[in-house]
Design a binder for these strands. Structure first.
Length: 313
DNA sequence: CCGATTTGACCGTC
DNA sequence: GACGGTCAAATCGG
């Protein structure tokens, strides 16, 4: 619908702006750090800042994805109990045995999701709880289903699916759905490795997806400087690690109805700015080998932050 | 004892 | 009817 934005939209965007402003500050700090000779402690600080920046991207994009797709929390059932009552209570004709509630769900056709292909399992600080495992047709490894630990107490709707890919044994396809609305205390994102410190191996492939009618993936590659943490490493068929990661946007253009093609919508411009961040992601994450030219690119990234922060929402 | 995981059942979507 | 996402009882484990 072309109806005006809901009343609470502005607060969502305000949150997005705050996230971006925070990311800009972190980037400034990182730039300062990188423009002077580094001491060992600086590397830790830089990695910490990097993770904060990446988290800023992730949260912002998640927020904007959910709003731009005109798929507001109320609609995407921010209230889990509401959804349940809708689903099962709406047509209460069926017998009300406990068993009847099992499996009653709605597929998230309208929720935005993104897929990440990674060789390492990364803990982003969010607490995940496994709620299912399923053998998928024509795949060797089962798919594992996780939801946010805070779903019962805070109604957080974030879920993810983890599936080990065939062929390369160390690649995992992780699909995220929804974004965290919980107030969980975040740990620093950490890469989980079962093979020790190997910065160059930890390549991560992201692709964002709007699951309306268009299904397109826009992958880009980035490699992480790493701080390795050992955590319940998944066995072959049990990718049950609490893993996740801050992520950056690719072109994320919500595939909702674009009726006005004549002028660039604010959403389009904003999306473009966000996609611009992608081109800097490798610069950020490649800071282990940072060079003067790379620190120059930080200026551009900060400019991009400025553009979005000053954007008229 | 309590929270997390496992796993078969259930059911919406294709 | 097959597939895949979710539920929830049973089980595990700290």
């Amino acid at each position: 619908m072309e109806s005006p934005w809901p009343e609470n939209l502005s607060s969502y965007r305000r949150t997005a702006i705050q996230e971006l402003a925070q990311g800009r500050d972190f980037t400034n700090q990182l730039q300062t750090l990188l423009t002077k000779p580094m001491i060992p402690n600086d590397l830790e600080s830089a990695e910490d800042l990097l993770m904060k920046i990446l988290r800023s991207f992730t949260e912002t994009i998640s927020i904007l994805n959910s709003t731009d797709a005109s798929d507001f929390p109320a609609k995407r059932s921010a209230c889990w109990d509401c959804q349940k009552s809708e689903d099962s209570g709406g047509e209460s004709s069926k017998s009300s045995t406990v068993k009847d509630r099992r499996g009653s769900y709605k597929r998230r056709k309208n929720s935005d999701s993104f897929t990440k292909l990674t060789s390492t399992l990364i803990d982003d600080g969010h607490a995940w709880r496994k709620y299912g495992q399923k053998t998928i047709l024509n795949t060797v490894h089962p798919r594992n289903y996780f939801r946010c630990t805070h779903k019962p107490d805070q109604g957080c709707q974030a879920t993810k699916q983890v599936q080990k890919t065939e062929g390369e044994p160390s690649m995992y396809k992780i699909t995220y759905n929804g974004h965290h609305t919980c107030q969980s205390k975040l740990k620093a994102p950490q890469i989980i490795s079962d093979s020790g410190f190997s910065p160059n191996d930890s390549s991560v492939l992201f692709s964002f997806q709007s699951t309306d009618n268009h299904r397109h993936e826009n992958p880009f590659l980035l490699s992480f400087p790493t701080s390795i943490k050992e955590e319940s490493t998944p066995s072959d068929d049990h990718t049950a690690a609490h893993n996740n990661q801050s992520s950056l946007s690719s072109d994320y253009f919500p595939a909702h109805n674009h009726n006005n093609q004549s002028s660039l919508s604010s959403d389009y411009i904003l999306s473009h700015e966000l996609s611009t961040f992608n081109s800097y992601s490798d610069v950020i994450s490649g800071m282990n080998n940072y060079t003067a030219s790379k620190t120059e690119s930080f200026d551009m990234e900060i400019m991009s932050f400025e553009d979005v922060c000053n954007f008229e929402f």
